[in-house]
Nucleic acid binder design. Sequence first.
RNA 1: AAAGGCGGUCGGAUAGCUGCACGGCGGAAAGGAAAAUCCGUUUGUGAGGAAAGUCCGGGCUUCAAGAGGACAAAACACCAGAUAACGUCUGGCUGGAGCAAUCCAAGGGAAAGUGCCACAGAAAAAUACCGCCGGAAACCAUUUCCGGUAAGGCUGAAAAGGCGAGGUAAGAGCUCACCGCGAGGUUGGUAACAAUCUCGGCAAGGUAAACCCUGUUUGAAGCAAGACCAAGUUAGGGGUUUUCACGUGCGUUUACGCAAACGGAAUAGAUGGGGCGUUCUCUCCCCUCUCCAGAGGUAGGUCGCGAUGAGCCUUUCAGCAAUGGAAGGCCAAGAUGAAUAGCUAUCCCCCUUUUUAGGGGACAGAACCCGGCUUAUAGACUGCCUUUUUAG
RNA 2: GCGCUCGUGGCGGAAUUGGUAGACGCGUAACGUUGAGGUCGUUAUGGGCUAAGCCCGUGAAAGUUCGAGUCUUUUCGAGCGCA
Length: 131
Amino acid sequence: MAKLLILKKRKDFVRAAKGLKVVTPSLILQAAQSLCVPDDCCRFGFTATKKLGKAHIRNRTKRRMRAAVRDVFYDNALSGTDYVLIGRYKTATVDFMALKSDLLYALSKINKMITEKKEPHSDEADLHPTD
RNA sequence: AAAGGCGGUCGGAUAGCUGCACGGCGGAAAGGAAAAUCCGUUUGUGAGGAAAGUCCGGGCUUCAAGAGGACAAAACACCAGAUAACGUCUGGCUGGAGCAAUCCAAGGGAAAGUGCCACAGAAAAAUACCGCCGGAAACCAUUUCCGGUAAGGCUGAAAAGGCGAGGUAAGAGCUCACCGCGAGGUUGGUAACAAUCUCGGCAAGGUAAACCCUGUUUGAAGCAAGACCAAGUUAGGGGUUUUCACGUGCGUUUACGCAAACGGAAUAGAUGGGGCGUUCUCUCCCCUCUCCAGAGGUAGGUCGCGAUGAGCCUUUCAGCAAUGGAAGGCCAAGAUGAAUAGCUAUCCCCCUUUUUAGGGGACAGAACCCGGCUUAUAGACUGCCUUUUUAG
RNA sequence: GCGCUCGUGGCGGAAUUGGUAGACGCGUAACGUUGAGGUCGUUAUGGGCUAAGCCCGUGAAAGUUCGAGUCUUUUCGAGCGCA
């Protein structure tokens, strides 16, 4: 895929939160099928809650997640998918290479889950992932 | 040199690679043109002293309102000045802390009125329990009654100026010296106030960060203010198709036909299709051609919004200072799920370690803009002042 | 952006107008009852020093007052409302 778009609407975040989820020490990744996006795009959203700290810590968390995504999304993200990254306490302080490897692991795992879901059933059958 | 006090400046630096936002420049398609959109470009710029808390004051915007005044509510309160304004700042006064430099203070009114002052104590704001003194009566070791007194008394945070002398039946500012207090005058000062002189003899406690009184200030709300554009929905209108159930017309006829007859209807009716109610049947409900488009203004967008502002820097003048005037120079973030990041190298600072080396670099992120206040803050540099010690 | 409320033992929650702080309930511990446990009853229970006793304690720091849980200011935390 060629393009990276940023999620902006609350609706999209809520839909991603209802989808699949992978947790790593430095971040949480959620994903769901996009509804109205061109084929060669995938969309990313970034969340940093008030629990993490004050404003400058939340800003740094989002910036680091954005930088990591920019490095890896081209080879590892599926097109037509919405991803949401949620920051954790460690995200702002952990080594950048570790953050990147966590992101790669989470992406590969969640992509595997998505393709497995797609193959056996039709798309409308599994709105509620049960694991 | 040590200890201390009051300020001021800064808030890691440089280079490279990969990326972000806005502006500039160039190009693309479309278009009358512009705006907007997309692509490229290293061409420019890119968080703070508090951006924070939202505690005050303004600009700006909308609403309200004759000018103005009053009530209510809130805030403030020694004096003078600065300022657009302020509850801010500067200088001074008074009181307090400190050897000092210096620092701290919501610092008007209790003689306008109301309330409160637990426990203790005779008594908490008005009085006489004990005591002291005098007189009278009873009775004769003392008791009772009347009067004077505020010297002494336990208590308490606080008990009718302090201390000494005179004075007295005992006492008392009753009188006197000193100190304190109050009133008036003089001098100095713009004033708060200070110094000094004369007089009064002492008025009857605290609390106003209890109500309150006096004086001053305040119209309300906030950029999600507000202005503009504007899907969908939709008043209304046009066109096409269908419908003969309705009115009129025509034909035949008394019930049908005619929409290449007209009007009206489209939320009248019929037929068909779809949706919903688990399944089937029935009933019921909703939807079912297209174009234009008023008003309103929703979703959404644009502006407000940053290169003109109580702006910044330098020099100079006035002033003790806050600050003000003049001259010269400069233009410096503008996002909206919200731009500054990631990595590498060198230098700087701190910690650990025998070296190599390793770890760390505070508080903290603009959101319409300014002036303050408050709070958080590793460390670095620097100016002035005070005290003590040593040397000359 | 504007505005409001609340912080008291381990927990919930009292404290009249400023006057001895921890009422009341839950919990915890010990003892009694029981073969054992529950229920029930009694006692104790904030922190420090061993007991009497003293000191410190109402989110934190200052102030007013003779005296603050209460009044005032600043600050920290939690929650709520409106646009």
